[in-house]
Design a protein around this nucleic acid. Structure first.
Lengths: 197, 197
DNA sequence: ACACATTTTGTCACTTAGTGACGTATTGAC
DNA sequence: GTCAATACGTCACTAAGTGACAAAATGTGT
């Protein structure tokens, strides 16, 4: 009964990947992003620099990749929303579900935000990720409502508005030191969008 | 009568700066951003690589800098809007004034957009620039309306919504090959924001 | 258990962006 | 014409990222 024990190889790969992110994030938060070299990340794990770049295309990817990888989760969340819900509401609720993940570890989320805001190249990647999410949600929304009720431009704007509120709320939370409860701020932000005349 | 003839130095500096952007843009549009090296830009002008980095902090800045530099113009535009105009309308009109600049040379604008979309690092900087504009306009809007009618979060969302429409319209224009008239698309986009329930 | 193909990794060499130090040339002010 | 300030070139260096190739580890067949 030689059961297909999951690949040793794949297992090792995922663990080294995790180790790399762990050590990397630790160093970045400690000494800053730019001042940390790949060699410093790689050395305590006994891995070569070349191998690092086989796991992550760039130094930034070490921090950003997991965000992009959670895109499908959003799409699923939006797809599972009740069909009678208004478009903007559905997208807002989808984004709100992410906010609760942040509430799981607000300390870390705050530190990460600081890192992103202090590091231009990371800020850029963060914006890029926002665009990825926007595009994915836009496509999903069009699919959900049909292109007649929801043509591309309209869908993009609906999603964009929700995302704007989301970003603004996060910034507001950050400016308050990350101590406040994120959810009410975000709900306030969403209501400000719908109240616009 | 040793009149203060404008600094020879400053004059030379601005011309070399212009030359660098000219040659750089030419090469970027021809061969792509990543495949063009600083040496290639610098060689036909007889300038050293080191000097290039005295003019531009990064390779990306060669393309992006002028956009950031036009931020004050936006602020002025928003400030000069009639005081009785509704906040969102004022911001929208401000952004529309930029659209007309694009209409001056749509061909070039389209090529540049393509370059930005094809080059990840440039896309990142472009998003960063968007944030700079947003922040500047947000501050101006708060100043204009007073922090009581227009607290930070509300101002940020008002500006963000206008910016979302602006970006979506530009993308729509780009997806159409840059052949359509930008202004009506943009007006449509702004109206879609205000029509949201 | 053995042989063989596949995949992963390390080493080496290389390109390119970007920086610091220092000397030289150019310009502005007197 | 002298002198200080500023801009530039040269050189040397760090660090990100890539290509090529060989060595090591793993998976798959028998």
């Amino acid at each position: 009964m030689t059961a297909k024990i999951t690949n040793l190889r794949e297992q090792f790969k995922t663990t080294t990947r995790q180790e790399l992110t762990r050590v990397g994030l630790e160093l970045f938060l400690q000494q800053g992003f730019a001042t940390t070299t790949i060699d410093q990340i790689v050395e305590p794990l006994g891995i070569s620099k070349r191998t690092f770049f086989r796991y992550f295309a760039t130094k930034e990817d070490l921090v950003v990749e997991w965000q992009t990888e959670m895109t499908p989760a959003f799409v699923d969340e939006l797809n599972s929303r009740p069909r009678e819900e208004a478009p903007f509401k559905a997208v807002s609720e989808t984004l709100l579900s992410l906010a609760s993940r942040i509430n799981t570890n607000p300390q870390l989320a705050f530190e990460l935000m600081r890192l992103f805001k202090e590091t231009p190249s990371l800020a850029g990647r963060d914006m890029e990720r926002r665009m990825v999410w926007e595009q994915a949600l836009t496509a999903t929304l069009i699919e959900r409502e049909g292109p007649k009720v929801m043509p591309r431009l309209k869908a993009r704007i609906t999603v964009g508005m929700a995302m704007t509120a989301w970003t603004a709320a996060l910034d507001e939370w950050y400016l308050g030191g990350g101590k406040a409860n994120l959810r009410p701020i975000m709900e306030k932000a969403f209501s400000l969008v719908t109240d616009q005349q």
